[in-house]
Amino acid sequence: MLIKVEQFFMRVNRILGKILTVVLLLMTLNVFFDVIMRYTFHNSSVGMQEMEWHLFSILILFGVSVALLDEGHVRVDFLYDRYSEKRKAIINIIGTLLFLLPLALLILFGSFGFVTDAYQIGEISEDPGGLPFRWLIKAMIPVAFLVLIFSSVGYTVKNINILRRENRSQLTIDNEVGK
């Protein structure tokens, strides 16, 4: 059952990763295109230039979740490396509950006002030809941290599975030794 749940989270994560892959490629082309347009055709649109950091924002905000489930985040590991798989899993479960979740929840709930202010006032870019709907890009902050909370559930499940696997093999070893 929990294995199925883990697989579900991993699948969602792969899809999210695919989407962000496309976002990165779009961003790269976006910046390149703007350079070419400005230099060769003396014609650049502020809207296109703002699109660059909109794509960048999506990339960095949602990437945090993808990196979490794929173990992409950096650790100080001189002790961690020497721990058993079981101990690592316990650290990850406790860390997620005590470290990650509170931070994500704080930012999630702290950013509602930030978004609704922009929405109510109908905030747009302050530059000529810039993009409208500032609330939309601002809303990516709570959405991304909601996704991070979702992913952290997946990460916890993943580590619970590791823990159970370790316990089971420990049990087998004990039994064999017992024989």
């Binding site: 790269t28 910046v31 960048f56 905000l61 702290g110 950013s111 930030f114």
Partner: peptide, 23 residues
């Protein structure tokens, strides 16, 4: 204090110089 976080994150988001990192 922590309601400052979205503002700080937003500043990172539209700091276009940081786009050099993924590129």
């Amino acid at each position: 204090m922590f309601s400052m976080m979205p503002f700080r994150i937003y500043s990172i988001m539209n700091n276009t110089i940081l786009m050099a990192i993924p590129l």
